[in-house]
């Protein structure tokens, strides 16, 4: 029993910081490659490109810093007394909640940073606005890792009181729901941010239109993450903990988490691609802004209906059995 306890505990500690660090490392490498390419293309804008790349890389770092914080929290939380069997198994939920979004976010946040480097090479006199735009899109992209961070803090505060396998599965399901649920929307947000950052390089007179379109579209692309967050908060607070063991109940809760998590992947990616295409077209022809924005929002609304069906099933698995 104790070996499994230690294995789960220390593997969680390792994974919570390891996977985000891999993603962040690859993303920062891509960003610096893009910065060097951009300097090669436009050597006179060297200092501007370096400034944008450093800001981008420092923001990409967020995922790794959060992962390091969570793994230190798990490590030192149970330093004096060894954790119980169920408490240490529940920390797998923490690993899922912070490591999957951290890994994906590390890779994905490199997209707007790379695009911004190339855009500065094309429009060197527009650096201030490009930098501001990149910081804004990059920090909005990182909402999923902050949700994962909040959920893992709540799981680590609840894991101490877990005494049954059913509650342990409940906490793991909550982590899996937000962890898997943020993969698709994060990729969609990255694709969209890359296309609008490149769009600024194509046509800087479209800045105002692209800016307002970005804020609306990122809110719509992020909607599936909010569905997954709702399910995981329900699992943490609304579903009551039970004193007696009920394994079938726990497996149903785990399925609810998996269902909500997997349901958002396709919707997130395709919603992001739709908005990315619309963003590129707005950069080419800013005068058709209202038509393009309406069509894109309508299409995104239809696409995200497919993320609502898994959420309904997850609700049914939670409450209507």
């Amino acid at each position: 029993m104790t070996e499994i306890t230690g294995l789960a505990h220390y593997l969680t500690v390792a994974f919570a910081v390891g996977l985000p660090a891999v993603g962040v490392g690859i993303g920062q490498g891509w960003t610096s490659t893009a910065a060097l390419d951009a300097i090669d293309r436009q050597p006179s804008a060297k200092s501007d490109i370096v400034k944008v790349a450093i800001f981008g890389m420092a923001l990409i770092e967020t995922a790794a810093v959060m992962g390091a914080f969570v793994s230190m929290l798990i490590l030192y939380n149970n330093w004096d007394t060894p954790p119980s069997y169920y408490a240490s198994l529940s920390t797998i939920g923490i690993a899922a909640a912070i490591s999957i979004p951290g890994f994906v976010l590390g890779l994905v946040s490199a997209m707007p940073a790379r695009a911004a480097c190339f855009t500065v090479a094309r429009q060197p006199f527009f650096t201030q606005k490009i930098l501001r735009f990149m910081v804004l899109t990059l920090s909005l992209i990182q909402t999923p890792v902050i949700f994962g961070f909040i959920v893992s803090l709540i799981i680590s505060s609840q894991a101490q009181e877990v005494t049954t396998m059913r509650d342990c599965l409940r906490l793991i399901a909550s982590g899996i729901s937000i962890g898997l649920g943020s993969v698709g929307p994060a990729i969609g947000l990255g694709l969209f941010a890359r296309s609008v950052c490149l769009g600024l390089g194509i046509n800087r007179r479209a800045y105002d239109k692209i800016f307002s379109f970005t804020l609306i579209s990122q809110a719509i692309i992020e909607t599936p993450i909010i569905f997954a967050l709702v399910i995981s908060v329900m699992l943490l607070f609304v579903v009551p903990p039970l004193a007696e063991e009920n394994l079938i109940d726990g497996i149903a809760l785990l399925s609810a988490g998996l269902c909500a998590g997997f349901g958002t992947i396709g919707a997130g990616i395709s919603s992001g691609r739709t908005a990315a295409a619309a963003g590129t077209r707005i950069a080419h022809t800013p005068e058709t802004y209202s038509l393009l924005a309406q069509t894109s929002m309508f299409a995104q609304g239809l696409i995200e209906a497919s993320a609502i069906y898994p959420m309904i099933i997850a609700f049914a698995l939670l409450f209507l059995r």
């Binding site: 967020t62 810093v65 959060m66 390091a68 914080f69 230190m72 902050i146 961070f149 909040i150």
Partner: peptide
């Protein structure tokens, strides 16, 4: 608010 908290707290702990 959690973005500010997480980054500063993580950095301070490290």
């Amino acid at each position: 608010s959690f973005r500010l908290f997480g980054n500063i707290f993580g950095g301070a702990i490290i």
